[in-house]
Nucleic acid binder design. Structure first.
Lengths: 254, 254
DNA sequence: TGTCTTCTGTTCGCCAGGTCACATAGACAT
DNA sequence: ATGTCTATGTGACCTGGCGAACAGAAGACA
């Protein structure tokens, strides 16, 4: 990171008109997001909405027996703290965990509510994003039921890649296993296959994607569904109806 | 059904002030919801938001191979057609299928947007419900990953029961299997166990719940989590902060 | 009454992914 | 070099749920 992160790296903030930016930016606070930091934990009060610039955050649900599964991945296309403006009070029932270090800008809940009451651009963007989030969570639900570990690993890697500048991810197999809610050995096996196919190189927590098209091919359909839907919803045009959908945002980001 | 269904049977409509009701009710259209009717299908345009009075609707996601899984259950506590006000355009990526016959009132999208722009009570209620829906879908995702068929069957029956007046459900095992995204035989086996334990009686598509406390006990935690969160969010009080949570809404409904 | 259809019960083999236990191999500090 | 982590690779074994195929039972209907 050579330069200080800018709010505009976050797509939602960037989509605001200069006028609204001028009003909001003075209230944004830049916060570092170190690996494995916990933004919100279950049952804890939330005080800010976070807009990641280059960090990636996972939302996890936990079970009584301690098992956990990630239900969504959030990067610079989105935000965290949905229930602060949806009216769900300030308690969250999920845990938000930094999965790839970076920064985020955050806005205190008071300001978020002011914007909500103003009923302006930011609210529309936030709601649109929430809709995309709902799609991602739904697709994760059906993916969990129907697809095998190796496909899901591909989905996960792709979702993460799309939210990074380079093609290098820093996460151990153990960590991925926790995110997917599967055994670590299962990830090991799937990752080995991907290495044999020349798609990845994996060494002690550092994954390098060598053949992205192949990775997409090996992934389950869920990745594509989520990406297309997200692109469609977050192609921040002035009004509700979006006609064309951009095909290659994901690859263009590399 | 002896009397004509009333809008107030739907909790969201009922929570509106008389003033707003007066404005909206003339535009509500009562529609019958026969078993297995499809309200929206994937990729189809949506024209109304539906407020069920006594019908139960399932939202399903489909896969390329034809498999499907229900990601949520909606009854008189909620509404269908979220993306009409969240700004996702008019296309839905899920299918909404009537799971228990009844009626619903529906509001044309034009009116929904008027209400949205008005930024009034209805919007707040709709957003609050959307938050509850997100919780339900998230919990379903983790449930799909971690819990066994028999527990999930209990969860499903309870979620459905809470949205009905009596303790009798009309659905075949085949149908339930489709909803849960599992084999029919798996449901047969789980249902047999429940019958042996005296929790259910099951005869050709008609399920009678005989011992509800036991059913709750045998269910996975997911039911409780969703119910509590839903009660909390939809306990339609004037403002955002809700302190106490009502414990027995579900059973009181019987 | 008998026939047809739909729903439920049962069985058997198979496999992905779970648990458990342990072996190796980078990374790093002393 | 040596020891100590931590991350990855491997194996043996078990189980829940899948696929397929079929038998019986309850309604529907002529």
């Amino acid at each position: 990171m050579l330069h200080k992160p800018q709010p505009n790296q976050n797509h939602i903030l960037a989509a605001l008109t200069p006028e609204v930016q001028k009003r909001l930016y003075p209230h944004l606070e830049l916060v570092p997001m170190p690996l494995r930091a916990v933004l919100y934990d279950c049952g804890q009060p939330m005080h800010h909405v976070y807009f990641p610039t280059n960090a990636i955050v996972s939302m996890q649900y936990l079970l009584e027996n301690g098992a956990s599964t990630a239900i969504s991945v959030v990067g610079n296309e989105g935000l965290l703290g949905v229930s602060l403006y949806m009216g769900g009070g300030e308690l969250t029932s999920s845990r938000s965990l930094v999965q790839s270090a970076g920064h985020a800008y955050r806005l205190p809940k008071r300001k978020v509510r002011e914007e909500f009451d103003r009923h302006g651009e930011l609210l529309l963007l936030m709601l649109r994003y929430t809709q995309a989030l709902l799609t991602q969570v739904s697709q994760t639900a059906i993916c969990n039921r129907n697809h095998q570990i190796d496909k899901q690993l591909c989905r996960w890697l792709l979702l993460s890649m799309d939210r990074l500048e380079d093609n290098r991810l820093t996460m151990t197999q153990e960590f991925i296993a926790n995110m997917l809610g599967v055994r670590r050995e299962g990830v090991t096996e799937a990752a080995l296959n991907l290495q044999r196919l020349g798609v990845l190189s994996y060494r002690r927590g550092i994954i390098e994607v060598l053949d992205r098209p192949k990775l997409e091919e090996l992934s389950c359909e869920c990745y594509e569904v989520v990406r297309k839907q997200t692109d469609l919803l977050l192609d921040h045009k002035p009004q509700r109806q979006v006609i064309k959908k951009p095909e290659n945002i994901a690859t263009a980001m590399l």
